[in-house]
Design a protein around this nucleic acid. Sequence first.
DNA 1: CTCCAGGAACTCC
DNA 2: GGAGTTCATGGA
Length: 291
Amino acid sequence: MIVTEFQAKNQIPAIKIQNCPYIDIFKSFDCGQCFRFDPVSVFDHKYEFGGVAFGRYVIFAQDSFDQLYIYNCTAKDFDLIWCKFLSLEENYEEIDKSILSTEKDIYLKNAVNYGKGIRILKQDMWEALCSFIISQNNNIPRIKKIISAMCEKYGEKIEFLGSFHYSFPSANVLLDAGVDEILALKTGFRAKYIIDACSKIVNNEVSLANIYDNESFDFCLSELYKIKGVGLKVASCALLFGFNKTEAFPVDVWMKRVLLNLPSTFDYNRLGKNAGIAQQYLFYYERYKTT
DNA sequence: CTCCAGGAACTCC
DNA sequence: GGAGTTCATGGA
């Protein structure tokens, strides 16, 4: 992995990463794990995805599989934030091999091959939790719309090349806004769940940091279950995408269809820490293979 | 009109 | 402890 700094147009700091290991930006941001990045065409690449994470606006871009560009980013930012965010320190080539040697099933093999290059993004824990509370009984375009409106109204404004982007609002800010204002974002019955989550986090009845640091998956689940509107599926998504608990295996309506295509002997627990990564391949394959 | 969406709480038995 | 119902909203 060779990181080179350069200046893009309008003095935007950028880096180019050569010999970049096994990442597909398009799939990683298209697979439904993250609701805050969208395709853009600011620079001259085949694929560009721009969005806000950890209070910063960035654009990830690729022309081919083995190199990666990051705009509005220095080499130091990469080391401190984006390398981890993109899970580039993990060896996904080995993970894929391990998945396929553990569960020898043709459907899973096809899914892994189809999703090759997806990386589980290490998102902010509060953003992941709040986003997946909003996700329940909802579809991805509308989830993105609600989160976008929430950020625009309550997040902090971030300027980039003359346009404005917004950070994900803190639990504190959303709690102060109150349930009626959260409801006004068209969150429906989820408004009271969001407020409950904010309240328990602000009052330290639920400590996200403790969940992040705890190795026991059952402990993490039971902590998140304290929040109204958080069940097994929402908790699993939050833990997988926001707390680096890659043994989580979220099952939604799409994954129920996937499980019908897998042999009855399939047991995700055998995949251990790779279960969540396999799940994302299966979800992506099921959801997008027809479209 | 009905059905569905990265579900969970609630209400019955 | 499982099965069925309800909860908001908008697109197909």
